[in-house]
């Protein structure tokens, strides 16, 4: 994100000139803000166990026959307000997504730069470490992290560490993608004459990496990061599907889709359709914005 802040002023002008960028960022921003403000704008608190009643379960959206004005988008099988559950669920999903992407992109880029630039044993160790990590399905890493978390924090409640487990599990798995891609790109850049010249002129490695190589490897990092934000949210949903995700008491968007998915045949469509639409909208807007950002940041475009 620091790249955005330090980007040349022309990015601002480009932004104002692109309807795609403005619309997608506006949608993403609205979704993110409404998730952040969920406690104030959501009509109900879906995480408060005593606040909803089974008697209200499976009410359809308010415009359908039998809808209840208290529940705009209807209720789920527990009687939870779907709209509130989506707003709160998005908070959880975004927290997991952003944190996992931030950690994995930072660690992966750093490792990739160092491995590609320094080469030698450091490169071998980092890349083989990546091999080891990539050999494990995310679900297994999630199981391991959650097993260790349980061991280290035996008295804490499940909800407290579930988020942490998910973030770590996804980040541990995904930094390798950045590392390998950045490494490949760094190898190419480092072999170019201007970098060789900079090296010969006695410029420090850190400066060469930051000034010359980092900007040039950033484009694939942003491509992967935007895809990975979506991926992280989906990975969370998949982990829930396989039984190691957010608990049903604190559902994320993914958990809502998983639970809704069980009702796919039963006609209670609003339980799965609205969370899924929200997820798609969120991922789509973030991706479109990421696309635009990549083009705008690319020093070689124009």
């Amino acid at each position: 994100m620091s790249a955005v802040l330090s980007a040349p002023p022309r990015v601002g002008a480009l932004f104002l000139a692109s309807p795609k960028a403005m619309i997608s960022s506006a949608v993403a921003l609205i979704l993110i803000l409404s998730a952040l403000c969920a406690p104030w704008i959501a009509p109900h608190d879906p995480f408060a166990l005593g606040s909803f009643s089974l008697m209200d379960s499976e009410l359809p959206p308010v415009w359908s026959e039998g809808g209840d004005p208290r529940f705009l988008l209807g209720t789920d099988t527990q009687g939870r307000d779907v709209l509130s559950a989506i707003l709160y669920g998005m908070r959880v999903s975004l927290l997991v997504g952003f944190a996992a992407v931030a950690i994995s992109a930072a660690v992966g880029t750093l490792f990739g730069l160092v491995a590609g630039f320094r080469g030698g044993w450091l490169d071998a160790v980092l890349m083989r470490l990546a091999d080891v990590i990539l050999s494990f399905p995310t679900i297994l890493i999630a199981l391991l992290v959650s097993g260790i978390a349980r061991g280290l924090l035996p008295d804490t409640r499940q909800e407290d560490y579930a988020v942490l487990v998910l973030i770590l599990a996804i980040a541990i798995n995904e930094w390798t993608q950045y590392a390998r891609t950045v490494r490949g790109q760094t190898l190419v850049e480092a072999s170019l004459d201007y970098v060789k010249a900079a090296r010969l002129s006695g410029l420090g490695d850190g400066r060469i990496l930051a000034r010359h190589i980092l900007p040039n490897v950033l484009s694939p990092v942003i491509v992967i990061a935007t895809i990975n934000l979506a991926l992280a949210v989906l990975a969370e949903a998949t982990l829930s599907f396989l039984g190691v995700g957010m608990p049903a008491t604190q559902p994320s968007l993914g958990t809502l889709i998983r639970i809704g998915n069980e009702n796919l045949f039963s006609g209670v469509w609003w339980v799965v359709v609205f969370p899924a639409l929200t997820l798609v909208l969120l991922v789509l807007s973030v991706n479109l914005f990421g696309d635009w950002l990549r083009d705008a940041l690319n020093p070689r475009s124009e």
């Binding site: 166990l49 606040s51 009643s53 499940q158 039984g243 608990p247």
Partner: peptide
């Protein structure tokens, strides 16, 4: 269990619910 946890909460018992495989 989610439903029971809600019902117990309403009589003043704070429930720490864990559902897992």
């Amino acid at each position: 269990c989610l439903a029971i946890a809600g019902m117990w909460t309403r009589i003043g018992v704070a429930v720490d619910l864990t559902t897992q495989t």
